[in-house]
Simulated scan of single mutants.
Amino acid sequence: MPLPHDIVKFHEPPVPEGQSPYVPGAGPSLQLEIAEWNDAWPGQFQLLAQKIEEALGWRALVIEHVGSTSVPDLPAKPIIDIDLIVADPNDEAAYVPALERAGFELRVREPWWFGHRVLRYSEPACHLHVFGYDSPEVIKHRIFRDWLRTNTDDRVLYADTKREAAALSRAAGEHSMQYNARKEIVIKKIYRRAFIATGLLKD
């Protein structure tokens, strides 16, 4: 179980020299369209979660709907973000082939960042984020989701930030990582308020 100081820290390790987080043929997305909340998104998550469970069985330790599509009334890129916890994300043979047979495609490999992998599913569109059980990232994602679900002011602030960042990035011809960077300051401010409220951080 991660310690509180690991949960509140933003782990941003650099990409090791000579390596890329993207598997051959993959790269950051240019899809920066923000859609208004769609009440079909929770059902799409349930469909995808069932596919993951059928593919992995007990190897899927936790399957969580995270990201903006998990927060009612929040606009989002229409891509379902899912956190999947497995025993060892670096042991790709234990889960990647089974997920590929279910229609998922490995796109990102970041062993230097808690073993993070990303697999993509096309319809409904999904980014499946794979971490180990000891990763603080999955706890952070749940805190952020639950905070936005119940705190209207921060949900509105984040919605406005997302729309502005997407518009600026589209105008500049940027990709998804640059769009994410435009949101970073506001995201960290929201996280700080959530961490203080949960007792993980002192005011």
Rank of each mutant, 00 (worst) to 15 (best):
W112F: 14
L168A: 14
I139M: 10
L119D: 08
A76W: 01
G43D: 09
E174C: 01
E33F: 09
G103D: 09
E92N: 04
V71W: 12
L148T: 04
A93N: 05
L84K: 02
S29Q: 11
R101V: 00
W58P: 09
E137D: 11
A194R: 02
G25K: 06
Q31P: 00
E64K: 08
P124V: 13
V71H: 10
A125G: 15
P13V: 10
L32F: 06
P21S: 06
F10N: 07
P136Y: 00
D160L: 15
A166T: 11
L48G: 11
E184I: 06
W147C: 03
Q178V: 07
V8A: 11
Y179N: 12
P21Q: 07
D91R: 14
Y121V: 01
L30W: 01
Y95I: 02
S20P: 09
R193L: 09
G27D: 02
A93T: 09
V156E: 15
P21V: 04
Q31E: 15
V71L: 13
T161E: 15
E105T: 12
R117T: 03
R170M: 14
P136H: 00
W147M: 04
A87S: 15
P16W: 06
G132S: 08
N151E: 10
V186L: 13
F144W: 05
D73T: 14
V15K: 04
M1R: 14
A165Q: 07
I85P: 00
